[in-house]
Design a protein around this nucleic acid. Sequence first.
RNA 1: GCCUAGGUGGUGAAACUGGUAGACACGCAGGACUUAAAAUCCUGUUCCUGUUAAAGGAGUGCGGGUUCGAUUCCCGCCCUAGGUACCA
Length: 927
Amino acid sequence: MEYNHKVIEKGWQKFWAENGTFRTSESTDKPKYYVLDMFPYPSGAGLHVGHPLGYIASDIFARFKRLKGFNVLHPMGYDSFGLPAEQYAIQTGQHPAITTEVNIDRYREQLDNIGFSFDWSREVRTSDPAYYKWTQWIFMQLFHAWYNKDADKAESIDTLVNRFEQTGSKGVNAACDEDVRIFSAEEWAAFMPEQQLEELLKYRLAYLRESTVNWCAALGTVLANDEVINGVSERGGYPVEQKKMMQWSMRITAYAERLLTGLDTVDWPEPLVEMQRNWIGKSIGATVCFPLPQLETYIEVFTTRVDTIYGVSFVVLAPEHELVSALTTDEQRAAVDDYIATTSKKSELDRMSDVKAVSGVFTGAYAKHPLTGQDVQIWIADYVLAGYGTGAVMAVPSGDQRDYLFAKHFDLPIIPISDSQDISEAADPNKDGRYINSEIINGLTYEQAVPAVIDQLQALGLGKGKINYRMRDAIFGRQRYWGEPVPIYFKDGLPYLIDKEELPLLLPEVDKYLPTETGEPPLGRAHDWRYKGENMYELSTMPGWAGSSWYWFRYMDPQNPNTFASKEAVDYWKSVDLYIGGSEHATGHLLYSRFWNKFLKDWGCQGEEEPFKKLINQGMIQGRSNFVYRIMDAEGKGTNKFVSYGLKGDYQTMALHVDVNIVSNDVLDLEKFKAFRPDFADAEFILEDGKYHCGHEVEKMSKSKFNVVNPDDIIEQYGADTLRLYEMFLGPLEQSKPWNTNGIEGVYKFLKKLWRLFHDAEGNFHISNEEPTKAEYKALHKIIKKVEDDIERFSFNTSVSAFMICVNELTDLKCNKIKILQDLVIVLQPYAPHIAEELWCLMGQPKGTISYASYPAFNPEYLVESEFAYPVSVNGKTRLNLPLALDLDAKEVEDLVLANEEVQRYIDGKPIRKIIFVKGKIINIVI
RNA sequence: GCCUAGGUGGUGAAACUGGUAGACACGCAGGACUUAAAAUCCUGUUCCUGUUAAAGGAGUGCGGGUUCGAUUCCCGCCCUAGGUACCA
């Protein structure tokens, strides 16, 4: 029989499914290994050839680990709540659950075609009530928690109430809202119950608060910071504005420091770690107070350069700063109001686009410099952001470029503060010199000055050291339908948790998936949707990231009705050993997941500080569009003549996208092209060497560019094993690359060659029991070693090449020895499981047992005898590279070196460091 | 601007701790088998000089440096991709 991928692959996929080959259980002595893929959102477009890249890599790894004797958890599921299904529902009226179901079925079919070793009995779907019950449960725990900074962990809100009852708010060190009240135990007891609840809300990890949010009118919902890219929504690219709204939020900032330090303990790609560090944005500095005697208050600023405090020549507030209105003088009021009105009208985008323009206005008021006591002007300007630090800055024009430009523009003083500064053209922030014009720190260095200033400010009660984070709390509500309902009801305007027994709180049916006439979210349309028939439920739903922030736990125990995952399962599987997915989730999913994981640790639900030990980012596969060149006539109109790429310079042409599926190696299939569109039916061509060559360009994969390649088409033509090998062969896993099928023939040929090793010219299966030769063992052990090394360092592409070399060598040796081929097939199994299973079976092994086989042991003896060198140690230090074939001990090496005249000339009395041999000849001696 | 990754033939790429640069594959050229095609196999293929060959020279973005030796390490610059941005 010839190699027939269609028969082989379908058969084995059926066998795996029917026999539950990849079911995982916890009852085994084997060590555990958890390999996870980022689960997909099942979109209507189905999988394209780029999606499986990471899944193939993780599948290879999972299969390899199984061969290495690990109990491997390798699950798959769907992140099935999301905007596209809902947008589709708005347009068509079809329930998102139906759309989602259809899409999932399609995904499943496509995934099955590739032959993954997923344990489908553990599948999860975030939109399944049995799943989101636990998403809601986790929300309830977060609502019921506060963050105790002294213990550096989340605790039950009951412990906080307890402390309020015992000692009031004194001594409570919590991550909480800014506006918490200060009260004694007696005052707490005297609060009305509603007042107490209102106060507690300021401490909860899931809390409701009026805050500035990113409002996207087109989507009708608020968005988290990571869902806003360059001032427009990540989904759809709609404009986003700032708006004050009552919103559910997650107090992720409580975990800022742990999220930061945890990054040092994980094995993640450096760019990703860096992205998270920047997103958290820790800066170490100080707060400084500028007194306002007339108002009996002060302006608090945050600075990372307290040492420059004597260079302050004015103070700038954000236009939204709360003190602006109080301190503006009557003469300036009109100008200030005007400025505030203009800036508030600017959208996020406008504000970013004129970053360079200097604008601002004087309030007319003055603050006292905390150290010199001099009056400094107070300005407002939109370069100061209300949302960062204290919304106010001390301006040091000599040390900060923005302050410098502002000072130049409005003719404000610029005070040099260091003897090494050059401020003739621009601000100079260097820290190298000694301070001048700086009273108590004159003549000091930067290192000496910082503590001196902070000590002085602290003594005056006008400042202290402070650490600031750029990261904001995450907005948790979405005014949308297709998401988890928030398990909250309202009574007298205050939020209460629903009873645990009421979980899951099911998503109610609605007549339309649009906001109500009064502007309520779609859930406002649900009939009689009230808690215990009385109280209004929360009408927002949870954001897309809610369900994905803990799903790896559910895979451990997916059907458990009593808990999100049993203690035994969580203790056994612990955390994800290898996680593969795209880097686009750096500041979203991966950060939120770490946050919930840490919370669940604090809550005693699991014991791991970090959820994903090792992480690999697979690159994106872009589309590679092909073009044909239509010749234009004298009037600039398109003719039906097309010229090959290399000759298009001779004509006036227009480039047209052509379906990449009718192009092979950039050569157009003329017949298929004529059938591509009716008006091309009688197209004429100007060819090069009898062929029509297409132009090409790398673009995003999209239907309109005719560059989408569906994995099913590749599998139909070449088979899943070829697809798997080829996607790996394409280049390093982490690298983004355009899809092309230029080399796929080579991979397909390799599989056919392998098949032929077992089959004679007539196509009959043929295998020999003879003892292999040394050369045959060498070929085998080379590949055993190579694949093992490659998989451990995720260099899958080089393995594919190594397989080809191995099969070429065995073909040259005419090797059909069972002792060689059985081991080779096991080594190949992770990459090309179908053909491996088939050959394994043909060689007389019981059907399907290759999945439980052991990876063959590598024996280095078979690799020795090469003409090449390896290092030898002589006299402790000297390293020599010598031909292994010589088989010498250290003394003999030394003698050999000393006997060699050429070497002697070089040694010249000095000890030899290294001798370089190439092809058995000394080419160099290192002294 | 800042941070991070990268730049090697016609193409995808390899070279794991500095040691024969371009493995492997595609493409291309030539050949074998065939009436022919497909399939398969063989040979060649970094560039330049050289009629073929022998042989020589150059060569891993550019310019320097360290080293006996640099794709690999160091310094400066250019380009590409991703992230981020009045963050005080």
